[in-house]
């Protein structure tokens, strides 16, 4: 083997090593559900997370905060929120139809009206929901647009939950 080809071989090895390492550290944060996903679902999940982040910043972050931290006792947090994670289908209805009335999140009572987002399509709601349900310590896996359509069919009429 010439020095040149050895060098190429070595750098290729190094490159693939970095790739492997990069991938494994990436999946480390994502737990069992991510491991269980097939390749197509993983790609979709990653896409949803990226697009969901953009939509979240545009439609949700002003109130719920960049890191889902909420605002004092006025606006509830999404990060590590027991209320959000207990019923994701309820969250999908609330994002779409808005909500009114008291809710208890992590032991704190909140009572601030949330506006509806009727202009968002099922796919966009799915991306947002996937993002908030898998960020800041939340772990739920992919919520597909098919899931969202099904959840939306079963929303209760009243905008308060």
């Amino acid at each position: 083997m010439s020095i040149k080809s050895r060098l190429i071989y070595f750098s290729l090895l190094l490159f693939s090593g970095t790739l492997l390492f990069g991938c494994s550290s990436n999946t480390k944060e994502k737990s069992d559900f991510y491991e269980a996903m097939d390749h197509r679902t993983r790609t979709r999940f990653r896409q949803y997370m990226i697009l969901g982040k953009g939509l979240y910043q545009q439609h949700c972050a002003n109130c719920h905060g960049q890191e889902g931290e909420g605002l004092e006792r006025l606006i509830p947090p999404l990060a590590k929120s027991d209320y959000l994670m207990a019923e994701i289908d309820r969250a999908v209805c609330q994002i779409t139809n808005g909500m009114k009335g008291e809710i208890v999140v992590n032991g704190v009572t909140y009572n601030q009206e949330m506006p509806a987002n009727k202009e968002l399509r099922a796919l966009e709601i799915a991306e947002i929901t996937t993002y908030i349900a898998n960020s800041w310590g939340n772990q739920r896996g992919l919520i597909s647009s098919k899931n969202v359509q099904e959840f939306l069919r079963n929303c209760t009429e009243s905008p308060s939950y």
């Binding site: 972050a61 002003n62 109130c63 605002l71 004092e72 006025l74 606006i75 009206e113 949330m114 506006p115």
Partner: peptide, 15 residues
């Protein structure tokens, strides 16, 4: 108080 757009972010900055 019922502002859904920029008010909460303004309030978090005032805090």
């Amino acid at each position: 108080t019922s502002c859904p757009s920029i008010c909460p972010i303004m309030k978090s900055q005032l805090i």
